[in-house]
Amino acid sequence: MNQAHAILVDDWHAVAELDFLRSRGAFATALLDVGLEVSCGGPDDFRVLRRDTGAPLATRVEYGHLFTTLGEPARDLVHFPECHEEDRIRVTGGSIGVNVSGLRAVENFLDMGHFPFVHTGYLGIEPHTEVEPYEVAVTEQDEILATACRFFQPVASPSAEGGMMVDYVYKVCRPYTACLYKSNPVEPERWDVIVLFVQPVGEERCIAHSWLAYLPHDLDEEATRWYMQLIFAQDKPILENEFPKRLPLDRRAEVPVRADAASLAYRRWLGAHGVTYGAIPAA
């Protein structure tokens, strides 16, 4: 088993969607193979205990989720300014368990190539299968940024009618946190935003938590959440059939094409930061 590196231990991770936690009262989960008891004593009273030592852990509430840490966070939660814009529909997507490394889930989130085949009729459709060249860079904030991404989508958003070319920007902020910005058909100068907080339960099991900040045109919270779950549930069986279930970081392990530039950058970046948990490190 690969040890969780300090970059993961000393960071915040989402461990519960708040509505889910409020309705359950308490439940058991795990973070980086450490068993946790998450509980709710009142509408805004949330606790996380380690099951092995009984020690209470620090918590933070943001983006519709409860976050905790196993160590001493060196950094604050990632700040997503769009998620604080009050005219947006802001809603959690609903946490879904996936039996694969959380790194695979993040990598899939960055991939446009699978749209026509996995999200047929929604995020892509044959013969519009080409991923045009796009730019990938590591920013001064040490985030991976993929820009100038474009793809033809039949139903690009919960309110879309008719196919359109959609612009995307992807950002990987932390090993298990990524977000995407997607052009909005009504307000082209603003973006719809989807943040993915992946909870690494174990090396080959994760829970995908998401936070959606959509522009409100012809949308409500229910439709926004419905669309997210429809799309994510299409990815789930593909992810669970990945082999190996952990993400190989050796560049010779899988054969990439140009459309995989974001994925390659992610794997390199994980390797450079010494992340081995949920990965198969390069030899």
């Binding site: 969607e17 509505d19 309705s23 959690t92 609903g94 229910e222 439709a223 419905w226 779950q229």
Partner: peptide, 12 residues
């Protein structure tokens, strides 16, 4: 009529 089953538990 869509029901927010998870996580909204609208069916309850």
């Amino acid at each position: 009529r869509r029901i927010d089953f998870h996580p909204g538990r609208e069916h309850k």
